[in-house]
């Protein structure tokens, strides 16, 4: 019998804590598949964030640590500098990476640390109960922007890829979404590209993934998938933001 589908070895066989319809589980699986395909599980070290994905370490079947809120790029830097032959990636959400950890991500990127960053952007703080994120859309209602985000008082959504793109140290940037099978396949390719860049000693790369949060968007899973494709992409256009040029 031909196997069409199986659990990646890099993923543990346990039920996740994520809400129904959440995008994190898909992203976990993509990472695990890519690690399996590249055959690097035994030399992979993951750095988990603080936020909804704080328990990511439970789901991956390789060495993982957990950083303080926003500090994952600094922790990854410390690991990678000590173990340059290992594969090191950080997994971060929008609060972790684009609010409290802004300093760490910009400087790790600027130094072109040879690490990969998987950045999950769902425009809201899930773990703490649905507060505004730096990436929350203008007009989006959250616990701390009950009338909808106002750009006058809260600024506009932070576009991380566009922010990092001008830095010379940044070698590859891609923004994708996990809102449809075809988009999921494209994101997987981007993750693989990012990981391969690190394995080739290419330097810093980041893949931003727009992910659905039905719970704090107040939508059904189907509605939230549609919301990414109709609304999020207007603020966060999909595609390759910075192309990898082999040096």
């Amino acid at each position: 019998m031909k196997t069409l589908y199986k659990k990646p070895e890099s993923l543990n066989d346990i039920v996740t804590h994520y809400c129904p319809g959440c995008g994190h589980g898909i992203v976990h699986r993509l990472i695990a598949e890519v690690i399996d395909e590249l055959n690097i599980r035994e030399k992979t070290i993951g750095v988990a964030p603080v936020g909804c994905a704080v328990l990511a370490y439970n789901y991956f079947n390789f060495d993982v640590t957990e950083a303080a809120h926003g500090r994952a790029p600094a922790v990854a830097t410390g690991i990678k500098r000590a173990l340059p032959d290992n594969f090191v990636f950080s997994y971060q959400g929008d609060g972790d990476l684009a609010a409290i950890g802004t300093g760490e991500i910009i400087h790790a990127a600027n130094r072109s640390e040879n690490i990969s960053v998987v950045f999950v952007n769902n425009t809201v703080y899930g773990m703490t109960g649905g507060q505004m994120a730096p990436t929350t859309l203008v007009g989006q209602k959250t616990l701390t922007s009950p009338g909808g985000r106002s750009s006058c008082t809260a600024g506009n959504p932070v576009k991380v890829c566009e922010l990092l793109a001008p830095l010379e140290g940044v070698k590859y940037l891609y923004r994708g979404a996990v809102s449809s099978p075809s988009k999921i396949n494209t994101v997987k390719k981007a993750i693989k590209q990012s990981f391969e860049i690190q394995l080739a000693g290419g330097g810093f790369s980041l893949v931003e993934i727009l992910a659905q949060c039905p719970t704090y968007w107040g939508m059904t899973p189907c509605e939230s998938v549609k919301h990414i494709e109709t609304e999020l992409v207007k603020t966060f256009p999909l595609g390759e933001i910075k192309k990898w040029k082999k040096e």
């Binding site: 750095v47 600094a74 922790v75 830097t77 410390g78 690991i79 500098r81 760490e104």
Partner: peptide
Amino acid sequence: IASINMVFGAALT
């Protein structure tokens, strides 16, 4: 803040 977290990363190894 970054310094101590880099130490954290190195110490981990």
